Simulated scan of single mutants.
Amino acid sequence: MAFANPSRDDIKRILEETSTVAVVGLSDNPERTSYMIAEALQAKGYRIIPVNPNAEEILGEKVYPSLKDIPYPVDIVDVFRRSEFTPPIAEEAVAIGAKTLWLQLGVVSEEAAEIALQGGLNVIMDRCIKVEDSILLPHGKSKS
């Protein structure tokens, strides 16, 4: 069966229940899309955890070389890597007990989706987390 993203209501719930977003492939270059999106999420109140083996600090946060090096729980693993690199990231997301694997706009991998789904994660592909957050939670997350 072909992959289908969760419903808009489910994506809204996922975002409302999220506090920590590990951003895999987050660049330290402010001109890069990953930086701009992570910065916007940080401004909305999400805790951003940069994952990049080639940097030490991004957006004021300590950078971790891989997901498995993060010492605390992660809600969403947001991926800014080419599609062919996503299956091992999905495996790491499952291994660390993340709740959701989110592949950014233009990133699609049926294999990564299957790994994450089999591991009990929500999977969202080919969608921009910043756009979804802006549409579904325009006034921020509710304090329920």
Rank of each mutant, 00 (worst) to 15 (best):
Y64R: 08
A112W: 11
P53L: 08
I124L: 13
V79L: 03
F85K: 12
I37T: 06
E92Y: 03
K68F: 06
V108I: 15
P87W: 12
L121V: 00
T100Y: 10
A4T: 14
L103T: 07
E110A: 14
N52W: 07
K44M: 12
T18A: 04
N52C: 07
V107P: 08
S34I: 01
L67F: 06
A43M: 10
N122F: 10
I48C: 07
I129L: 14
N5Q: 08
D75P: 04
R81G: 01
G97Y: 06
D9Y: 03
L26F: 13
S19R: 15
L26M: 11
T18F: 05
E84I: 10
V94N: 02
L15P: 03
V79R: 03
V63S: 04
Y72V: 07
G120L: 00
P53M: 11
L121N: 07
E56D: 12
R32N: 05
E132H: 09
I11E: 12
M1T: 06
S142G: 05
K12N: 03
F80R: 06
V108N: 06
N122Q: 10
A98C: 07
Q118I: 00
L101F: 02
V123D: 07
D78W: 05
A95S: 15
A116G: 06
V63A: 05
I115F: 12
N54C: 07
E110M: 08
T100R: 05
K141V: 02
A55N: 12
A98K: 02
K99M: 02
W102G: 07
D69Y: 05
S83N: 09
I129V: 15
A40W: 13
Y46M: 06
H139G: 06
R8F: 08
L117Q: 15
A93N: 07
E61M: 13
G60F: 09
S83W: 04
A93V: 14
K143G: 11
Y46L: 09
A2N: 15
K62H: 15
R47L: 14
